[in-house]
Design a protein around this nucleic acid. Sequence first.
DNA 1: CACACAACCTGTCAGC
DNA 2: TGCTGACAGGTTGTGT
Length: 277
Amino acid sequence: MPELPEVETVKRGLESVLPGALVEKTTVHRHDLRHPIPENLVRQIKGSKFLSVKRRAKYLLLEMEGGITLLSHLGMSGSWVIRKKGEYKPQTHDHIIISLSNGRELVFNDPRRFGLLLPLETQGVEQHPLLSHLGPEPLGLAFSPEYLKESLKARSGPIKTVLMNQELVVGVGNIYASEALFRTKIHPATPAKHVAGRSKEIVGAIRLVLNDAIKSGGSTLRNYAQASGDTGYFQHHFMVYGREEEPCIMCGTAISRIVQAGRSTYFCKSCQKLRKK
DNA sequence: CACACAACCTGTCAGC
DNA sequence: TGCTGACAGGTTGTGT
């Protein structure tokens, strides 16, 4: 489920419940996620209080008392869900269950196990190898038209793939890259350097799409997106993603699907013409 | 260096 | 009904 809007939605859900809660008990059913969950995690956080919930790129950072931050990533299929104790019915692929002092349970479920949960030292956590190479936040000031222009100038790869590179800008994944490009009328296969001059539009479109999606509680395709168990509804606002063969909302032309770097890209071949330079 | 691609793992769905 | 292949919102290591 997880591009920036979905992770931001989960973050807000956790934020309303976690701060101030103490860890009473942690159960780990499976350790073998993308990185193995350290054996000492359970001991390490027992009795500790959650202080805050932050998001960096598509990562969640659960800051705890005692200088520990739980770094989490949802991968392709991960979810954090908060449930009232007693109402909890175990699900397949529930890998971690953290029982809290406020009558809730925090459950990490992840069928494909591309997700991540690592206890790190809060001090200098941004310097951790998983975070240190990340580019600017797309909704922050550092992601400026000037910055993007400079970044695109040197890249010959297709603009859609380049926008998904987390070293250039974080949080834009397969759905929102297609959606943002449709709004700029740029063909997804255009060499990035050819549209460096249109960085202002691209920045604007990315911000617009991500903000709209956050307002909608993210997109829910196959799994629950929100910590409450509710579904987001931005999927109903997709203009091109997943709409192959359906009419373009602007011109009626059938939406196309191509594969770029192994991922599906959706676009309108009439609205988004591929032009040479 | 920049880019394409496979791999990681499980579930679902279309087609035979 | 059961099998097979394609595909799924991400990231990383390897090869060219």
